[in-house]
Design a protein around this nucleic acid. Sequence first.
DNA 1: CGGCTGACGACCT
DNA 2: GAGGTCGCCAGCC
Length: 123
Amino acid sequence: MPYDPERHGPHRIVGKGFHARVWAAVGAVPAGAVTTYGDVAAALGARSVARKVGHALAALPATGSDVPWHRVVQSSGRISGAPEGERALRQADALRTEGVGVHANGQVQDFPARRHIFGSVGE
DNA sequence: CGGCTGACGACCT
DNA sequence: GAGGTCGCCAGCC
């Protein structure tokens, strides 16, 4: 149950540091697990801002970041972008290092079972 | 200060 | 499955 507007209500991501919220949420994803842009957005309170989640991760420094951005994939379980793209290759490699299998086309093996479920905002 | 731009996703044909 | 549409909204021109 990624997000249920009927129960959670039409929350809005307000205030400051949207990036920081995204990074904090992504940082809560344990190694060996993956999550989706939409799930992160939902964890922040607004499932509709999945795009912004991607944007926030894109703003991360290429290296030296402690944010496990590679654990974030599309809702389909696929790594975003072209599978041969530089970013996608790095992401796939990082995931395999953590024991997460990734197909040549970028699809995460056993994606549904590895999908991390966020508890609540801020986790 | 207005317009464009997306590491996306749900929905429809 | 594979395509196209539409919404979303914080940043960056």
